[in-house]
Amino acid sequence: MARPYALLRSGFPYYLTMGQRRVTSNPVDIGFGEENVYVLTRGGLGSEVRVINWEDENLGLRGSGSFTWPAGLLVDEDENLYVSDEAKNTITVMSKDGDVLDTWGEPGSDHGQLDRPSALDFDAQGNIVVSDTINNRVQRFTRDGKHLQTIGGVQGSGEGEMNMPWGVAVDELGFVYVSDWRNDRVQKFTGEGEFVMSIGSSGSGKGEFNRPSSVDVDAHGDIYVSDWLNDRVQMFNADGRFIEQFIGDANLSKSGREYILANQVTLRLREMTDLEPTRRLSAPCRVRVDSEFRLFICDFGQHRIQVYKKEAYELSESQIAPPMRNPILFTT
């Protein structure tokens, strides 16, 4: 599917809230199966994969007790689950029922070795791209762990250099995006690893980041970055121009509503307070966008998934004026 020439951006309304504390506790990544939704959680309330469905029902756990610092999750077309563990330097492959099918990865800094593998993404061929944090690079592997490619590998803040990358994404054209965590920027590379562009700098203004944790790209080429310690997600167009930000608009999830209805004191206390903060994101760890332009945000500190859905109309070249060099005040 080719990208449209341009878009009429109609809006990005809030779509859905999923999960609750003690079910989707401290989510760090999310993936989708036929009917199941898989949420990777990490922390004192459990480091494992929680399975829920679109009805927000709790369907159990996978991989409990197997992970120390699980960081990234991928779900393939057979619903096998790939989980990176940045303490063990491994990628574990499990069936949808949680049976371990394979574990690969070894610690080190040679090509193919890993030092804190964090985010994961599939490329168009179904290979796995891994953010290799302490080695300041991104590596590409086959699904069974054969090393294919290394991008980066030099610590620094120059073009193509990285400082503890966290998030990684591959778009449908094969470009690779890295949330270059300690440099407060996102870098874009060609599939061959050539530097293309950089987005952002340190700060809390528009287009600025405080330790970006993840990045994803939709089929229009729009780029989403979870701006971790600024408690928001920022959206950029394919050229890296800031478009808008998401600070959270959650309502009660279905499971959360059921929980509160069973608790009289909680019901009363909510009547005694200001509820505005309940909408907001808290330290979002992962943003993912699907083929239906639904934007999923792992709202780490609030133990839930916030979902927005893009409304945009695709435009052909004949429907929109050509690019302009100068801004104008006069419009008819």
């Binding site: 003690r22 709790n58 929980y259 069973a262 608790n263």
Partner: peptide, 9 residues
Amino acid sequence: IYDNGSGTD
């Protein structure tokens, strides 16, 4: 006495 849809409080 009543469950909360996942457990009990």
